[in-house]
Simulated scan of single mutants.
Amino acid sequence: MNGSSSSSTASSISETQDRFMKLLITQMKNQDPLNPMDNAEVTSQMAQLSTVTGIEKMNASLSAFISSMQATQALQASSLIGNTVLVEGSSTYLAATETEGESAAYFAVELPVGADNLKVNIKDSSGKVVKTMTVTNQQAGISQLGWNGYGDDGSKLADGRYTIEATATTANTTVAANTLSYEQVMSVSTGSDGVKLNLSNLASITTDKIKQIY
């Protein structure tokens, strides 16, 4: 693909040069003998050709560099396939753990400043709050939390994906609280917008959005 692109670019540059030279020769053939083109004008037009050609070559080199960088980034990102990453997200997945067999769900909340109280509502697929968790005296940064799958009414809830919402307060003043999800990297894709990681929650993110890798 890169070879084809380079060939096409070289052809474009050559065609530009040919068109310019033909135009210049035509001008010189049809010039007014009483008012011929002077050397300065010819030099100016040749300089224009040099500038256009240089820009096209620079663009070709830049395109090749970007393609090479994307290929390198995609190769590096592919090493994350199968790994769990912590990213911005508003859901968690309740499932049986490998070690204990009991269901559990894990997620996190990021606080830019400390909070006296952190409240997390967990909702089912219908939007109903099934569990409310409250944690006190949380420091700034990422707070990792877990849920055993039991609702506020004491019932064991079905495995599956649940929505999480977080609110935090300090001295009765609301502070920012961003929910984070643990998701598995399923595949890597490349496109005009760069390299993307395709996650288990069906979201696609760039690698700079990853908070932690497991």
Rank of each mutant, 00 (worst) to 15 (best):
N2F: 08
S5T: 12
S5L: 13
S8N: 07
S8I: 03
T9V: 06
T9S: 10
T9W: 08
S11P: 09
E15L: 10
Q17I: 08
D18L: 14
M21Y: 09
K22A: 13
K22I: 08
I25A: 04
I25M: 03
T26G: 00
T26H: 02
M28Y: 04
D32V: 07
N35M: 06
P36E: 03
P36R: 00
N39E: 11
A40W: 03
A40D: 14
E41L: 07
T43L: 09
Q45K: 12
Q48C: 00
L49H: 01
V52H: 01
V52P: 01
T53K: 00
T53E: 01
E56A: 09
L62A: 14
S63M: 11
S63I: 07
F65N: 07
I66A: 09
Q73S: 11
Q73P: 00
Q76L: 10
S78D: 07
V85D: 01
V87P: 05
V87M: 06
S90I: 07
S91T: 15
A96R: 12
A96D: 02
A96Q: 13
T97F: 07
T99E: 14
E100T: 15
E100G: 15
G101I: 03
E102R: 15
S103V: 12
A104N: 06
E110F: 11
L111H: 10
P112E: 13
P112I: 05
G114L: 00
G114K: 00
A115H: 04
V120D: 00
D124T: 03
V129P: 04
V130M: 08
V130N: 04
K131E: 03
M133H: 01
T134A: 10
T136N: 13
N137Q: 13
N137M: 08
Q139Y: 11
Q139L: 13
I142R: 12
Q144R: 15
L145M: 15
L145C: 10
W147G: 12
G149H: 07
G151W: 05
D153P: 06
G154C: 05
G154T: 08
S155L: 14
K156S: 02
K156T: 02
L157A: 12
L157K: 13
A158G: 15
A158I: 08
R161K: 15
I164W: 02
A166M: 01
T167H: 02
A168R: 00
A168L: 04
T170N: 01
T170F: 00
T170W: 01
A171W: 03
N172T: 05
N172D: 15
N172L: 09
T174I: 10
V175F: 03
A176S: 13
N178V: 14
L180Q: 14
V185E: 01
S189W: 00
T190R: 00
G191N: 07
G194T: 12
L197T: 10
L197Q: 03
N198Y: 05
L199Y: 04
L202T: 15
L202R: 14
I205K: 09
T206H: 15
T207Y: 04
T207K: 06
I210G: 02
K211L: 06
Y214I: 01
Y214T: 04
